[in-house]
Design a binder for these strands. Structure first.
Lengths: 251, 251
DNA sequence: CCGCCTGATTGCGTATGTTGCAACGGGTGT
DNA sequence: ACACCCGTTGCAACATACGCAATCAGGCGG
């Protein structure tokens, strides 16, 4: 492991929280002021951070370009985009595209709700596995041993009244998801918000999951479940774009 | 300067060009394979890169979140967004928001054209100063000595038939821009594409520039110039959002 | 089925880059 | 005008990251 690289990246992450002064960064990094200064200089030369006034530093412009590339690299995102956009236009609700990474899910794309009351989230945000519909879909698609291992390795913080809190319950839920082909998060993650999610398949199985996230005040559970056929049809379309073989009704 | 941090960041930039193997990265970095491996491990731990298959590395998901933050930090972008979006909707043409940085302009936001023939660009992309309308607007707003210094320090590669190639011509053009309040790029950057740009002012002067970029086949120069009043009105609106005092007709 | 070959990975000693200290300097506020 | 507060730099000690070379894994051909 490279110490200075690690410290440098830590600084970048620290700056993700907003503009900071040298002193604030020094405290956060836990190393000497001059060290931080030198790291910042290197980051500045590569445009990962930039000075903001005399006393402040903030994230630099190199990140824009990099993130655009990084997103474009993920062809799920590009391929699924039109279908998800249409789903968003049709339903007016927040649509998320997510993939599994290291014991969490990451939102890799988002289409905003048209309603005034909407869920807060952003691309790049991570969410826990035990309480999100997208995670259930992604986990349900994994081979049983891996599913078991992950379910037993993860935490189950109780975030709302409905949160699943044990591996056993969770694995049972995953079985239900696998059977039905979609997942529900009935206000298990955040109070007053429920979601339905379905998988997007590529050539070699499930590559991502997409969800509709809706505040309960906008649509009750039945209404939300009424959107599932549309969701599934959209995911089928997206899956074909991602190189999946079309689903056959007779199998 | 921190060597390992610099090398690590160089690796990230290298990966911006697409997924790479360890060997390819080693060549690009010009250091020993094991060194690259260790840097990659640190980057991986911070999710700046991730493995893609067994032999490849690609950019990681940390960048999404960071870039979102970085963009949100720039309040010009957030404040100007509604006005620019409307301009894009009204005209159907590509709208760019750009700011000056280290002898180049950086596109910090973009609204896509509705036409099939459209300009290629992306957020985070950089462009030269001597041949873009946004650069002319930004430079024209600078104090004369700084303008002079920049104009004489920069390069003037001839990119098209119309490209300005000397500091003298460029400075004269800047004077025209300052006088008229908008700038034109008459296919000086890319053949067949021309642009008009205008400044967005904040509390302390010009903070960014926005442009309409249109292929000549879609609109001739006269038609493009016909859009200038709309552009200026939009920028006036955006400027007020950015904290500028409303323009007074009588001054 | 075995052995070769390519490419990833690790242990280790050393040189080098990096660190913290302390002194300096520039700007700001009183 | 003075003092204070930061940011900045030079330097010497040290830890760290480097390159080397041996090891390991995995794929391919014999």
């Amino acid at each position: 492991m490279s110490q200075s690289l690690d410290r440098g990246l830590a600084l970048v992450e620290e700056l993700a929280g907003g503009r900071k002064t040298l002193d604030e960064l020094t405290d956060a990094a836990g190393v000497h002021k001059s060290t931080v200064l030198r790291l910042l200089r290197t980051l500045e030369a590569r445009r990962f951070v930039q000075r903001d006034g005399v006393h402040h530093y903030r994230l630099g412009t190199a990140l824009f370009a990099l993130a655009q590339r990084s997103l474009d690299d993920r062809d799920v995102r590009r391929s699924a985009e039109p279908a998800l956009r249409e789903l968003n236009a049709r339903t007016g609700h927040t649509v998320h595209l997510a993939s599994y990474e290291d014991g969490e899910v990451v939102y890799i794309d988002k289409f905003e709700s048209r309603h005034a009351v909407r869920m807060y989230s952003r691309i790049g945000k991570r969410a826990p596995l035990h309480c999100t519909a997208v995670a259930k879909v992604l986990l349900a698609a994994m081979p049983a041993p891996k599913r078991w291992a992950i379910a037993h390795a993860m935490e189950y913080p109780k975030l709302t009244e409905n949160t699943i809190t044990t591996p056993e319950e969770y694995l049972a839920e995953l079985d239900r998801v696998a059977e039905r082909g979609f997942a529900v998060d009935d206000a298990e993650h955040e109070d007053f918000i429920h979601c339905v999610a379905a998988p997007i398949r590529g050539q070699h199985g499930v590559v991502a999951a997409a969800s509709l996230s809706v505040p309960e005040v906008i649509a009750d559970l039945d209404t939300l479940l009424g959107l599932v056929p549309d969701l599934l049809a959209t995911m089928e379309k997206a899956s074909i774009e991602c190189g999946a073989a079309p689903a056959r009704k007779d199998v």
